[in-house]
Amino acid sequence: MAASTASPARTATALLAGWILPGAGHAVLGRLRRGIVFFVLVMGSFGLGLAHDGRLALYSSREWLLSSMQVLANVGVGPADTIARVGVYGEAAYMRKDGDPDPHQEARIETFRSRWRSALSIYGTAYLWTAGLMNLLLLLDVWDLSRGRKD
């Protein structure tokens, strides 16, 4: 039996909710238990990342491709990433301008480098990227569910 399709408004709501709160998209589409499991896994990975000095990537024009992919992997987890950036950098920082004498930029880059130097950073960064990428996969799953391609 083919799964039912959701209305465009419900699909949009589920996608937005899923990005804002991992697993919420599934809950909106009636998969509450699955949504709770996804929330625990994604936010657990995100929490482990922050606890292990994970690097919150900053876009740099010198390494535009790599750094933009890293930022995308971070942003995938939703507003939690922004909150974490405020906690780590003191502001919602997403870019760095190397060589800029602005003290704000220097402080931002120094914070980034200090996390880079941490022995735990390789683990933390892997957890952070995994959390974001898992949530992006969940959004694709929400899309498939709402289109009736999955049940």
Binding site: F38, L41, V42, S45, L48, A119, L120, Y123, T130
Partner: peptide, 26 residues
């Protein structure tokens, strides 16, 4: 916690559970 083995087990468990719930229903 800087043990490669602990993180290997933890990370593998998270990824394995995630894909199991994502791709399987029963």
């Amino acid at each position: 916690m800087a043990s490669h083995v602990v993180h290997l087990v933890l990370y593998s468990a998270i990824v394995a559970l995630f894909f199991a719930v994502l791709t399987r229903r029963e």
